[in-house]
Amino acid sequence: MSDDTPKESQTHEPQPPAEAPAEAKQPRPPDQAQAPAPGAEAPAPAAPPARPPEGRPHGGRPPDGRPREGRPGEGRGGESRGPREGGREGGKRGRRGFFRKKKVCRFCVDRVDYIDYKKPEQLMTFIQERGKIMPRRITGTCSRHQRWLAEAIKRARNIALMPFGGAR
């Protein structure tokens, strides 16, 4: 997760120059556009160009990533590719003003050092109806905690604290 934030900022930085200069050049040279304080219309161009570049270049991907979010673990194939990208941009506003909250690992928030397999009530929130372990891309769990979580769930299954399949 700590990786994500720098990367996002990197992906966004190159983009504004791509379109921002195009619009910004008309009112004034680019180096002056950087200091828009004096100009009254400067804030206006500065703000709108910032939105579209975010939305459009990403446009190809998030629409893929977003619906997937909605249906947990349904299809296969293409799904394996999309969510990775979706996760990367997950923290930011995608196109059309969708706002997706940045997913945070619940275990990291609580500073969990060990996930106990003897507490099935807690683990139950991380399995699907049919007993599958929820994928990371849905729950937002970090990779490390997902590993521990998976292990805990598997242990709990072994001793009949949690189901293997959905039906009892």
Binding site: K118, P120, R157, A160, L161, M162, P163, F164, G165, R168
Partner: peptide
């Protein structure tokens, strides 16, 4: 209650 049936039992007495 156990999460699945074990030797035809639905419940079990757990000891840790």
């Amino acid at each position: 209650k156990m999460a699945y049936r074990v030797m035809r039992h639905r419940e079990g007495y757990y000891v840790l």
